[in-house]
Write a protein that binds this DNA or RNA. Sequence first.
DNA 1: CGCTAACCGAGACGGTACGTCTGGTCTTCTT
DNA 2: AAGAAGACCAGACGTACCGTCTCGGTTAGCG
Lengths: 201, 201, 201, 201
Amino acid sequence: MKSDGSTETTSVRREGPKRSEASRQAILSAAREELIEHGWRSFSPDRLSRRAKASKQTVYRWWPSVAAIAIDAAISMIDEPVIKPEEPVDVQLAAFIEPFSELARVGDGAHLLRSALLAASDDPAAGEIFRTWFNNTIRKPMKNVLAQAASKGRIRRDYDPDAVCETLFGAVWHRLILMRGPLPHVLAMKSAQAVLASLRP
Amino acid sequence: MKSDGSTETTSVRREGPKRSEASRQAILSAAREELIEHGWRSFSPDRLSRRAKASKQTVYRWWPSVAAIAIDAAISMIDEPVIKPEEPVDVQLAAFIEPFSELARVGDGAHLLRSALLAASDDPAAGEIFRTWFNNTIRKPMKNVLAQAASKGRIRRDYDPDAVCETLFGAVWHRLILMRGPLPHVLAMKSAQAVLASLRP
Amino acid sequence: MKSDGSTETTSVRREGPKRSEASRQAILSAAREELIEHGWRSFSPDRLSRRAKASKQTVYRWWPSVAAIAIDAAISMIDEPVIKPEEPVDVQLAAFIEPFSELARVGDGAHLLRSALLAASDDPAAGEIFRTWFNNTIRKPMKNVLAQAASKGRIRRDYDPDAVCETLFGAVWHRLILMRGPLPHVLAMKSAQAVLASLRP
Amino acid sequence: MKSDGSTETTSVRREGPKRSEASRQAILSAAREELIEHGWRSFSPDRLSRRAKASKQTVYRWWPSVAAIAIDAAISMIDEPVIKPEEPVDVQLAAFIEPFSELARVGDGAHLLRSALLAASDDPAAGEIFRTWFNNTIRKPMKNVLAQAASKGRIRRDYDPDAVCETLFGAVWHRLILMRGPLPHVLAMKSAQAVLASLRP
DNA sequence: CGCTAACCGAGACGGTACGTCTGGTCTTCTT
DNA sequence: AAGAAGACCAGACGTACCGTCTCGGTTAGCG
């Protein structure tokens, strides 16, 4: 997630005070608490600014929408997947899901995650933020893993990488959003193995 | 959208201290329009009752929550899946997805569907309504189909029916909720075949 | 306050296509309680009919407005003044005020009286009902008393009867409506004597 | 009715986190119109804020109750009585009533006045506001006038100042609230003279 | 070292929505 | 025909929230 944008080397002179990092953190932190307590539909800038002891002006100055805050707040809690090329393919695929199920397991992480996904779905612009992040963090690396596997002959050559991604994460959304069920540790491996089973060369 | 509407012989009839079917239909119809125009987060009982020319009292009298209305409004647009036991298993499985992708293809059906899913996720009680419907309409019949297929030796005996359901519909949710992408006609068959490929005996 | 209530030997009898006296009494009685509890501005036909176990239809059928009910409910509690021609003029004049201050002294009578006066003032039509009653019960008899007194030479011949009435009851309204003060027993006599003092022949 | 209104040089200025005087005036002005058009019982914060183009929040922020607004709106239209000690006592007493009958004579002033009095009677807290104003503006100054007159031997020494006030204004209330009659110019002097007649030394 | 500009918390503003209660009307069923 | 019951549309209730605006104070860096 692009948070501050410190690359302003060109002509746009930023005179005077700079963005308060303390305020930014307070708002994101308050956002997490608010999303967990009240959910996405009742996520209100008013309560947010009150809880963060920040003025509404400050909130509106730095985020394009409340949905963007929700996504920002949640994404910053999801670790980057750690892929080790030397491991078997199923383990590598499962590694993409791990950060999600890990967050969903601790405390009210599932609620936070769900709220952010709802925000991404509700607000098209904010959804674009999420999709960009998802593409960079999940979809592209996964494509690489699959390409590698295919070149080694582990899976069929006529596989559809997007369909694989869809299937793997579809199960996550199904449990998280619709079923409000848990994301047990084994889910990642079971999904990965099922997908691979359908891709046997 | 309007299914019967045949009773409107005179101008605007009221039928006394019984629930008015005309009012119910007007509210559901207005709900569909509101969800499509404004989305779930801005789905307001105020605007709904104004559009339906119904009093808010009437809305609150007959539905436990706005989320319940959203789900009611969407579910009533989803046709029951038509399963023909004599057809191949992949066709039967695809038939469960068909009603969804069919609705998503016409007009703003996708938006309506997405809004209802958000409602189901936002409001736990309303989510229960959706889950009950999903269980009766999709999950249980699908279990029967799978059991039949297993008894005929078409698929492995150690299959997990919930995982199959999860995988099949996960792709739908992924496209509908997160990617805001289309649900092309072939998706149903492709998903069904991929799932079956992983269940080869 | 409950005037009949004795006929309720069986449960709740209904007596067909005549106006139900039981219903009328129940409504008036409930009206008194409602006016005392909630005051005029919050006097609601809804609560009234609920408390009286009468349908709103019945209320609207027999009274032209809620204000009329309030006045009806209060007036029926005010005794007719008892005038004895053989007594001194000041006693006779004071006798007109007595029923008011008597009602105001018992329980929440002052509140009931005040509410009815507000109703009479708020609703012009209902005000007319009150004025008619006041004219017949107070103003005309008082005029007779004054004419008698004048013919006996007790007061000046150029008195203005309406001004006398106005002065006597003005003090009552002042205390009752604006000051929310008590109407002590001596007030009637003091007012009467003050008025007479200004009419000495 | 509009007293200054001169500050509106630019279109509609807002002046930040201080109370907006423009808003206050708009609300009081709208309140006067609403009270005249609909009376006290139908005086609704909803319509008031709509007419004043002010938000309901703003109304509730600055007034403790709707009744308080009604009283504020009316009182601000009643001029302070102008008492000249060198004039006869009856003229001085009449001067207290003059501002009331003056307001009642112009346009719908009587309706406005009546509505405010009903508000004062309906709401005990708001009534207290009115009583405080009445005490400071009418009762205390009148006591001074009477004390002066008594010390000069114009009236009896054993007069009751509250009874005098009650009698003088009782006639006003009687006409204004109950009889819905006019407050002719002569009323003030006639009442004053009648009261004084009963106080002859 | 004072000026200026962007920052910040605070909060008033006109609006809209919340879920509940009420106002009058109407309809059905019961007596 | 009268009455109890209650559904209906309309809209008021007081509170909470929306996004915009203005205030007064603070802080950086340029002149």
